[in-house]
Design a protein around this nucleic acid. Structure first.
Length: 531
RNA sequence: GCGCUCGUAGCUCAGCUGGAUAGAGUACUGGUUUGCGGUACCAGCGGUCACACGUUCGAAUCGUGUCGGGCGCACCA
């Protein structure tokens, strides 16, 4: 709709025009302050310009009214236009709000180390990434979801050691000294038991077999990670393993040319020249590559695979890492502009109003799977999607278990269920509903119809600005409009029943489509709360 | 100390490519259809948009500075 209006304006005025939503719907469907910016160039008062522009739209079928108010230009779409658009959407529900974009995007997210199950902090980045992925898919981008598995380096050795000690302490009742830095947590119980079955007790005592144990364990941990993500409706297209990348290191190093140099027996990347705080070591004196080396090879591989755009979602604590990776990308001869790094901020939990501290060492980490069990995948996804990803977030578990309007996901689901209930009580046939006209329904219904048809713009906006909360906000307000409409207007048994139910179908379609983009399935009926 | 980021209602958060009286939920107070699920709806209360200066016809939004919070500043990943 907006594109259509924009195009008309561009034609008339000869430039790109900012369209906004009027604060008050009585002003119209769209508005623009364009006259203010034209005022200077034309040396005329904004009021007069707006008046002139308004009258030039008089004979358009798209608008029923265009008027100038205090320099603003307000547009009201015609019933005819809205009704046609709605009918098209209903007869092509799977195409509603879809587009064809010609861009290949690689989206990397989560990428948590395979040393333990995902915790609540990972969940935020996971939900954010998956929501962007769904939006992009819907908009027609050719997008790939990728998980980078850091299965090399110290933390993997540590995993092997941690299992050995955990097993000896818990399975074999030994008293062992557990160093600070080792991993703890319940998941080690299962791993220890499985390891004992597979390898026998000896493996917990044999230092030379730590590596073997670790390599087995990280794959087991990845299985847990993938399953937990699946429970949240999150799936990846590809997994890239860090351990498999280093074979390519020599070639990649040469490719960076002057970006790489040797000093003090180590190999460095000249990242300072590209905006980093200082140069970084990529190969140590003992010739072991650093983590950065792996990431360089990985990004080289990404670019060699040839996408138009790359998005990485990282935890906010990695923000200092961005300049060095971009520097590497430039030395590799690629356009660092194509690499977009989005940060997912910290999450803090409140329990009974008190901050709850997590610590890996203490093993009291709040696991993502625990939260899913507690409040459900839908509520978790919704709450994370509805907060801007780059601000720190605090949330209280109790809030999201409630089943009333204080819990937005519940409120939206109820709106959708309400529509289904009404449809099931209809006294007219589906055919009558489909062929009925959406005209002459009155002010309230027109408003609701317009709101429901805004979905395509919202999806586009949410993706291009990477602000997925625009979608959740939209769904909340559409649900509110529906609930209000339901309260105000009786539908079943009235003369306008078929028309009104058609309107509900449009609203239902937007709710359902919007929810599915959040990875949430719309419900047809609400379960009564079990006391 | 340096860098990034945030500071909007009692609380949790939107709004930030500058635009019409700053929004929602929650909390609190009071109400609601002789009707389609009241798991809903309405109204009231509540704001010097951290502070100061600047740019502009116009600033929560842009710029500079101050104060305050978070994160980062590894040859760890």
């Amino acid at each position: 709709m907006k594109q259509r209006v924009s195009a008309l304006l561009r034609e008339k005025i000869g430039r790109e025009v900012v369209l906004e939503k009027p604060r008050d719907r009585s002003f119209g469907h769209f508005a623009t302050p364009i006259a203010f910016s034209l005022a200077k160039e034309l040396r005329k008062s904004p009021m007069i310009i707006a008046d002139e522009l308004a009258s030039s739209f008089e004979d358009s079928d798209v608008f029923s009214k265009v008027e100038a108010v205090k320099g603003y230009l307000n547009f009201r779409l015609s019933e005819e236009f809205l009704a046609q658009y709605a009918s098209w959407a209903l007869s092509n529900p799977s195409d509603f709000a879809k587009q064809e974009k010609n861009q290949k995007i690689l989206l990397e997210f989560v990428s948590a180390n395979p040393t333990g199950p995902l915790h609540i902090g990972h969940a935020r980045g996971a939900v954010y990434g998956d929501t962007l992925y769904r939006l992009a898919k819907h908009l027609g981008y050719d997008i790939t979801a990728e998980y980078y598995v850091n299965d090399a380096g110290n933390q993997i050795d540590l995993l092997g050691l941690s299992i050995q000690l955990h097993a000896r302490e818990n399975l074999l009742d030994e008293t062992v000294e557990f160093p600070e830095s080792y991993y703890r947590g319940e998941y080690l119980d299962g791993l220890s038991r499985d390891a004992m079955e597979k390898f026998g007790v000896e493996i917990f005592y044999d230092e030379s077999r730590q590596k073997e144990l670790a390599l087995w364990a990280k794959d087991e941990v990845m299985k847990i990670v993938v399953k937990d993500l699946g429970d949240l409706n999150i799936f990846f297209d590809t997994f890239v393993y860090e351990s498999g990348l280093y074979a390519d290191w020599d070639r990649v190093m040469k490719k960076m040319g002057s970006g790489i140099y040797e000093k003090d027996g180590k190999v460095w990347i000249a990242s300072e020249a590209k905006g980093d705080e200082k140069d970084r070591v990529v190969v140590r004196e003992d010739s072991r590559p650093t983590y950065l080396a792996g990431d360089i090879v990985y990004h080289n591989q990404k670019f060699e695979r040839g996408y138009d755009h790359y998005i990485n979602i990282w935890g906010a604590d990695h923000h200092g890492y961005i300049p060095r990776v971009k520097a590497a990308v430039e030395y590799l001869g690629y356009d660092a502009q194509k690499l977009e790094v989005l940060l997912s901020q910290m999450v803090s939990l409140l329990k009974d109003g008190e901050p709850y501290k997590m610590s890996k060492r203490a093993g009291n980490v709040i696991l993502m799977s625990d939260i899913v069990e507690e409040i459900g995948a839908d509520a978790l996804r919704f709450i994370f999607a509805s907060k801007k990803s780059d601000t720190a977030l605090e949330f209280d578990l109790a809030e999201f278990k409630k089943q009333d309007s204080s819990n937005p996901i519940f409120y939206i689901q109820y709106a959708h269920a309400r529509i289904q209930t009404l449809l099931s009580k209809a006294s007219v046939s589906r055919e009558d509903i489909n062929v009925s006209s959406l005209k002459n329904l009155g002010e309230n219904a027109d408003t609701l119809l317009f709101d429901a048809l805004l979905l395509p713009e919202v999806i586009e906006d949410a993706f291009t600005t990477r602000q997925v909360q625009k979608l959740t906000d939209y769904l909340k307000s559409l649900a509110a409009s529906l609930h209000k409409f339901y309260y105000d207007v009786r539908m079943i048994g009235t003369d306008d029943e078929a028309k009104l139910l058609k309107l509900l179908l449009v609203v239902g379609l937007s709710l359902k489509t919007g929810l599915s983009l959040l990875g949430i399935e719309a419900k047809d009926r609400m379960e009564k709360e079990a006391e």
